[in-house]
Amino acid sequence: MGETEHAGAGDASPMTFGDYLRLYVVWAQEAAGVLADAADLYGKLADRGMSGLADRRDETRRAIEYMEQVAGVNAAQGIAHDEMMAAGGSGNSRAYVEYEAMTRRHQALLPKDALG
């Protein structure tokens, strides 16, 4: 299966930009879950007296919040894209202008903290 086909869709229909955004949402949510497990482990090890792991737990919790925010913004952007496409895509100038404005609002919501 090519990377631009729907997984499990039963056909080879090409993925839309909205589909890719939804994949990013799933990825970010899964990453947040893995990070939550790591934060729990760091917390347990910190409770046993291992130095520096309480800080690592707190950093990991920040990363979880970051990934959850990325997932939320990508989900909203996917909806905005679907709405623009349903209204005629970029051929509908009003729908496209509204989509561009929504994109700017979503970009402003993305985390500015580099986590690094």
Score class of each variant (00 low, 15 high):
residue 68 E to P: 08
residue 2 G to P: 11
residue 71 A to H: 03
residue 61 R to W: 00
residue 26 V to K: 15
residue 36 A to P: 03
residue 34 V to D: 13
residue 16 T to W: 02
residue 36 A to D: 11
residue 36 A to K: 14
residue 12 A to I: 05
residue 99 Y to H: 08
residue 35 L to K: 06
residue 28 A to Y: 01
residue 87 A to W: 00
residue 68 E to M: 12
residue 57 R to Q: 14
residue 96 Y to A: 15
residue 1 M to C: 13
residue 80 A to S: 07
residue 10 G to A: 01
residue 58 D to W: 03
residue 107 Q to A: 14
residue 1 M to A: 15
residue 58 D to I: 10
residue 31 A to Y: 00
residue 26 V to P: 08
residue 60 T to S: 01
residue 26 V to F: 10
residue 8 G to K: 13
residue 74 N to S: 06
residue 78 G to H: 05
residue 97 V to G: 10
residue 115 L to H: 04
residue 3 E to I: 03
residue 103 T to E: 09
residue 72 G to D: 05
residue 5 E to V: 14
residue 37 D to T: 15
residue 13 S to Q: 12
residue 82 D to Y: 02
residue 74 N to K: 07
residue 27 W to H: 15
residue 89 G to R: 09
residue 111 P to Y: 03
residue 2 G to D: 12
residue 5 E to M: 12
residue 9 A to K: 12
residue 85 M to L: 11
residue 19 D to T: 11
residue 72 G to F: 05
residue 47 D to W: 00
residue 45 L to N: 06
residue 95 A to R: 02
residue 50 M to S: 01
residue 50 M to V: 13
residue 102 M to V: 11
residue 2 G to H: 11
residue 33 G to F: 03
residue 74 N to C: 10
residue 96 Y to F: 14
residue 90 S to L: 11
residue 38 A to F: 02
residue 111 P to F: 02
residue 51 S to M: 14
residue 64 I to K: 06
residue 41 L to Q: 14
residue 101 A to E: 09
residue 79 I to T: 14
residue 20 Y to I: 13
residue 33 G to K: 07
residue 59 E to A: 10
residue 38 A to S: 05
residue 70 V to C: 03
residue 75 A to M: 04
residue 38 A to D: 02
residue 32 A to R: 05
residue 30 E to M: 11
residue 102 M to K: 15
residue 13 S to I: 11
residue 10 G to E: 00
residue 107 Q to H: 12
residue 54 A to Y: 07
residue 69 Q to Y: 04
residue 51 S to I: 13
residue 23 L to N: 08
residue 3 E to Q: 08
residue 59 E to T: 07
residue 22 R to F: 11
residue 84 M to E: 03
residue 83 E to C: 00
residue 74 N to D: 09
residue 42 Y to L: 02
residue 83 E to R: 11
residue 10 G to D: 04
residue 8 G to C: 13
residue 54 A to V: 09
residue 1 M to G: 15
residue 52 G to V: 01
residue 15 M to N: 04
residue 106 H to Y: 10
residue 81 H to S: 08
residue 35 L to F: 06
residue 87 A to P: 05
residue 7 A to P: 09
residue 45 L to G: 07
residue 21 L to K: 06
residue 15 M to F: 07
residue 55 D to C: 13
residue 4 T to G: 10
residue 62 R to A: 05
residue 48 R to T: 07
residue 36 A to Q: 14
residue 32 A to Y: 03
residue 30 E to Q: 14
residue 99 Y to R: 06
residue 46 A to M: 04
residue 25 V to S: 09
residue 54 A to K: 15
